[in-house]
Amino acid sequence: MIALSGVTKAFDDNRVLQGVDLAVETGRSMVIIGGSGTGKSVLLKCILGLVRPDGGTIALDGQDVARADRDAFLARFGMLFQGAALFDSLPVWQNVAFRLLRGSLARPRDEARAIAIEKLRRVGLGADVADKFPAELSGGMQKRVGLARAIAAEPEIIFFDEPTTGLDPIMAGVINDLIREIVTEMGATAMTITHDMSSVRAIADEVAMLHAGRIQWTGPVADLDHSGDPYVDQFVTGRATGPIEAVR
């Protein structure tokens, strides 16, 4: 279980997170929604240790992540970045197998390549893609390679940062379905941040809304359309008028 308690983070005068409390049960898929610039990405980066929170605690299975063995902690995670963040200088298969070619999870090169091709197949890409470079792929294919890399070492926890941003609706649907299938079949805990409501409905077991640096509402995805929270209602319906200022 991932548990956040009173997490705060400011960049100079900009108080992005102002006391976030959130719990994600093991094996569940939590989607965090919220407007642009509300700190969703910062929240994920705080959990991963990419950004150091100013206050509060973040615990994984009851252990404070700030005191955990960093390598062992990160080995439990996979992450799909918003722009895929593939390494330009490496061919696709080495991107996917990056973790399997070095460090504590290293294995023989042939085996790592075979796993990479299997994971590429799992996300709907053929073996012919394996030796291409990221720059030769479309945005949707890069996202799928990023997804294959996130699952290559079969992590217990997977983070998805805006997985469908910049994709056409059909490709977004493909990515959403893939994420849901993979999370279910792996039994992984998932945290996704998005403002794409179709992603929310396809991926989430639970939804949390981040607003003004705090969790405004959290509940099962089935309750999203009748949450009783005016902020969530405005966000879900996409109205310009309501408690959330349209121009921020």
Partner: peptide
């Protein structure tokens, strides 16, 4: 392009 962050999340 977040490749540095990606390296870190890949335990590198």
């Amino acid at each position: 392009t977040e490749q540095i962050d990606a390296l870190t999340t890949l335990s590198t």
